[in-house]
Simulated assay, not measured.
Amino acid sequence: MSYSTEDRSDRWRSFAADTLALILFFTVTGIFNERLIAGMAWEQVLHTRLLGAGLMVLTGRPYGFWRDWFMRFSSTSRSSHILWDSLALVSFQVPIYAAILAICGANGEELLYGSLGVTVIMLTLGRPYGAFLNFVRGRFGLPDGGEKPMSLNM
């Protein structure tokens, strides 16, 4: 019986860690991109961040699974970690981000520049976010991702 309770606890801790990491890290980078690169008004930035936070609650753990799956292709080299973390982040987050911008009223130019800007940001921040995610997981008593792909950290 305790095994089942432990599994449930690990799943909730994984959900909490992955979601918290995503919200903390990308709220800050989202504000930077939307205001300074896309040129959105502060009201648009607020609406975008509120919608983004809600979506991050829904996508935090699925992204954790996605990243863990990508990282299984990574070797132990630093450049491999950078490559696979960046590919995971861009392929998962950019389409979601573009949809958020469109829903929140970005015009065509804002959508284009916002999406291009966030692609560059995601490529650049892929590995730092991966390391941050591993750090947050560690604080929750969870292992780094990628060692047990698509697992629930059981």
Rank of each mutant, 00 (worst) to 15 (best):
I121T: 06
S80E: 10
R127K: 07
F26A: 00
I121Q: 03
L50K: 06
L142M: 11
T76D: 12
I96S: 03
G130I: 00
T19G: 06
L36D: 12
G60V: 00
S79L: 15
R137V: 04
M56S: 15
V28G: 08
D144Y: 11
R11C: 10
V90A: 09
V57L: 11
L152P: 12
I121K: 01
R13D: 10
F70G: 02
G105A: 08
I103Y: 15
A38H: 04
W42A: 03
S115R: 09
V94T: 04
G117W: 12
L87G: 12
A38N: 00
A99K: 09
L51V: 04
S75N: 09
Y129K: 01
E34P: 05
M56L: 11
W84T: 01
F92C: 07
F32G: 10
S151P: 10
G108D: 05
F25I: 03
R139C: 08
C104W: 02
M56V: 11
E147T: 08
G60K: 00
S4F: 10
E109A: 12
L123P: 04
N153L: 11
M150V: 11
L46M: 12
A131R: 06
L101R: 04
M1C: 07
S74R: 13
T59A: 06
G39W: 01
R78C: 10
G30T: 04
I37L: 12
E43I: 12
T19A: 09
R11G: 05
D18W: 01
V94Q: 07
T48Y: 05
G130V: 01
E110A: 06
F92V: 01
P149C: 01
P62G: 14
R127F: 05
G39Q: 07
G52N: 13
G39A: 03
A53F: 14
M1I: 07
H81F: 05
M122F: 15
L112I: 13
F15R: 10
D85E: 12
M154I: 08
G52I: 01
L123E: 03
T19S: 12
V118E: 05
W66P: 06
I82F: 03
Y113Q: 08
S14H: 00
V136S: 06
D18F: 02
G146S: 00
R72M: 15
M154R: 13
M71A: 02
L20R: 03
V90M: 11
L55N: 08
F132M: 10
G117H: 11
L89Y: 05
H81T: 02
R72G: 14
P128E: 00
G54M: 02
L152A: 15
R72F: 10
F26Y: 11
L142T: 02
F65T: 04
S115M: 15
S14N: 08
V120D: 14
S4Q: 14
G114Q: 02
W69S: 04
F70Y: 11
M56T: 02
G52T: 07
W42P: 03
M56K: 12
A21Y: 02
T19K: 04
V118R: 00
G141Q: 15
L87S: 09
V94H: 02
S74F: 13
I82M: 00
E43K: 13
L142P: 10
R127L: 00
S2I: 03
G64F: 04
K148F: 14
M122E: 09
A38G: 08
F73E: 08
A38K: 04
M1F: 11
T59P: 08
S75M: 05
